[in-house]
Each structure stands twice: as C-alpha cells, then as structure tokens.
Design a protein around this nucleic acid. Structure first.
Lengths: 228, 228
DNA sequence: ACCTGAACACCGTTCAAGT
DNA sequence: ACCTGAACACCGTTCAAGT
C-alpha cells in the first residue's frame, strides 16, 4: 500500500536522487575520477552518474575545463604542507612541499595535464601558493623574484608530472619514449656529435631524481639571478 | 566526348586524388593545422581532406597522438638555430635559440600542449637538441648536468607556451586567469600574508619577460648546482 | 599489403520548452 | 531560476570485407 500511496511520488531510483549543487557535482566528479580516471569525467558521464541530463550541469559549471579545474583543486587538498613548518634548511622544506605536490599529480596523472591548461584557482591552490611564498620569504628571496619564482617551481613540477602522465592511464607514452631513445641511439656522431656523446645519459634518472635536482637548480638560480 | 570516354575512369574530383603516404598525410595535417588550428586536425577531418575514410589513415599513423607529434616535429623546422653560431656570450645564444623555439610554439599554441604529451622525436627536434647541447658544452657545463639541463630548458619553454595557449585558439583561459587574479585580490592578509603582500606582483610581466629571466635562472643554476 | 564502409561507443554544447 | 529532452555537430578506433 505505502509502496505507491500517492500519484505525484512517481517511481524513483534507489539512492534518493540528491538536489544538484555545485558542491555535489564536484564531489561526484572527484569520486568518478578516483574510480575511473579523468578521461571518464565528461559532462555526459557525470550527468549519468547524477541521474540527470548533461544540460543540467551547465547551470553550475561553465564547461569541461572548469569542471576539471575544480576537480584538480579538490585533489590539491591532499598535498602535505606540513614540512613547511619543520625546522631544517628552508630549501629542503620547499623541496619537501613540492615533492608532495608532485606525488599527488603523479598518482592522478591526467590531472597534471589539466593543471597546465587551466591554471588552478581554488583555495587549496591558494594555500599551496602561500606556503611556498612564506618559505621563499624566510629564505631571504626578494619579493619580485619570489613572485615569478614560485610560478616556475610549480610549473616545473606540473610539467614533469604531465610528461610522465600517459604511462599509466592512457598507456602509450612508453612507445614514444622508446622512439626518441632509438633515434638518439642511431644518431651519427658526424652530424650530431653532442647527442652521440651523451647518448643514454640523456635518459638517466627517475623523474623524482631529476626533479629534486631541478628544484635545487631553480632555488639556487632564483637566489642568484636578479630580475631585469 | 572526352568527358566520359571509358567506363572504369569514373567521376573523379578535381585535384587528382594523390596516393596515400605517411609524408603526404603529415603534410596535409600541417596545412590543415596552419589553416584551422590543431583541434581540427582529427583523423576524420584529415581523412575528409584526403578524400578517403578515417580507417585508411591507420595504416600510416598509429593514433591521433602520434599524428600530432609528427605535425609538431614538422613545425620545429621553423625554429631558428642560426644564433647558435654567432659569437656573443654562449648564454645569450642559448636564450636566442630557446626564444625562437618558444615563439614557434606560441604562434601555434595548441601544439605546445601536444609537445608536453608526446615528447617529440623527429629529426627537427634532434637538431634542436644537438644545438643546445653544443652550446652548453661550449659554456663548460659538465655532461651530466647538460643532459638533464637541456630537458628542463625545453620543458620550461614548452610549458610556458602551453599555459598561455588557450588564449588565442580555444579562447577561454582569459576568464580563468581573472579568476585567480580575483581570488588573490580578495585574499585576507590574516590567513595569506605573503599572497596578500605580493598581490599583483604575482601577475606582472609578459610571458616573454618571464621566460628570459627564467632561462638565465636555469643557466645559472645548472652551472652552479652539482648533481647527486 | 593496402584500402574501405560501416559500425560501435562515445563526445561538448546549445536551445526551446517546461516547472 | 532551475531543469530538461532533444538535437546539432562532431569524435577515435576497430573490423570484416574487398582489391
């Protein structure tokens, strides 16, 4: 009897379709991304997850790029800002925070590429920015260089994650890496002496090893190189 | 009479449909990209341009990513390697070559994003690599640092171009930049003192101004920072 | 070996119409 | 104001079948 007591309360799905809000949409998008990867976080797929049509999402989200940016900022909440308050060398603490940032992007690889495209602007990104700027300030880096420097540091981390992104999820970068390696291997010393001389050296090191070196290169350079 | 002389010679289109070759496909892809932008360089659109079906292209091209990589390498032929043989400071010459590289990517913006995804491996990329390695060698940069350093230099240039890519072609990054700028403007000094202190400083400078500073930062850092 | 038609399984975004 | 059905204009990739 209670099953279909009144008319307007028509057949509804099990999990009591929740009202649409930007928050709910983004949360669902994050869950979907964790479960199936960013490429599956499309307007249509997400709408289906929310038991509605894609057009409905456009009330809360301008487009797919903005949706991905929101997902990205949400994930930036996983970055460990703790090391910033440690008491070791400030440079080591900058590297620790950036390494945590990189690891988050590495785990959710496709997001790194999105990060380059959208320039995140959520509050988690802002917290990261603040943390890094405070450390550079503590290290005595002049404001004008810190302002530009923090951008390069994050960009380098992001780009490195983006480059090594395809390996896991879309799985076809492997072949491309080999293509370059093979080309470098076969290069004649007569036309390309330096490439031939360095050879495999060009491909040594894990992304992490390379990154920690690069972070130090940047911190050194930022401290020593005046602007203008 | 000659119009339809024999039967097998059926109605054919004006530009005498050329035989498919990888070269021809890539050349057409480049032309299409120059005319309509990279987002239009799809398998289907390209096949249409070549007067065939998309399936035919898969004989010569593994997938869309590889196609874009080939287009990218072709465009890398526009990079001016001339400055490398000048006689000024080697650092200035590195910056000149990298600036040319950046300009090419800036003009064909969407390619920059592709460059991060595919790690180009054509012969034009190889020539660029050789040129930069020779300059670093000339500058006395140790081999192990040159090997990793050249990668960072190119990555930074590429990532910067990729970030500022959307502005022109897809045209929606503008709004996102403003979003971050607005957020930074409204940030309370109590919770985010450094962000508040730097304020607009975070957004000053053209990409080119920033890049030339960054290139010097990197060259300085690479010279002074040992590996391990 | 090379080429193709047709199909499968998707996309983003807009818009007129409803509530 | 919010939500939706339906449509428009596309995608990448595979595969059986032809030449």
């Amino acid at each position: 009897m209670t099953e279909h007591s009144t008319a307007p309360r028509s057949r509804r799905e099990r999990p009591a379709k929740p009202a649409l809000t930007r928050e709910g949409i983004v949360a669902t998008a994050v869950a979907l991304m964790l479960a199936e990867g960013l490429p599956r976080v499309t307007m249509r797929r997400l709408a289906q997850e929310l038991d509605t049509g894609p057009a409905s999402l456009y009330v809360y989200v301008r487009n797919t790029a903005e949706l991905h940016a929101a997902v990205l900022d949400e994930l930036l909440g996983e970055v460990d800002l703790g090391p910033a308050k440690g008491d070791g060398d400030w440079r080591g603490r900058v590297v620790a925070v950036l390494t945590s940032y990189t690891n988050v992007l590495f785990e959710h690889s496709a997001l790194a590429r999105a990060a380059l495209a959208v320039h995140p602007s959520g509050h988690n990104y802002l917290a990261l920015l603040e943390t890094l700027l405070a450390l550079l300030h503590e290290g005595g880096v002049p404001d004008d260089r810190a302002a530009w420097g923090v951008d390069v540091l994050l960009q380098t981390a992001t780009a490195t994650a983006a480059e090594h992104a395809t390996r896991g999820e879309a799985g076809d970068a492997e072949g491309q890496r080999d293509a370059l390696a093979a080309m470098v291997h076969d290069v004649p010393a007569a036309t390309h002496p330096r490439v031939a001389a360095l050879g495999v050296e060009l491909f040594t090191g894990t992304p992490q090893e390379r990154l920690t070196w690069i972070f130090r290169v940047l911190l050194d350079g930022i401290r020593h190189t005046p602007r203008t």
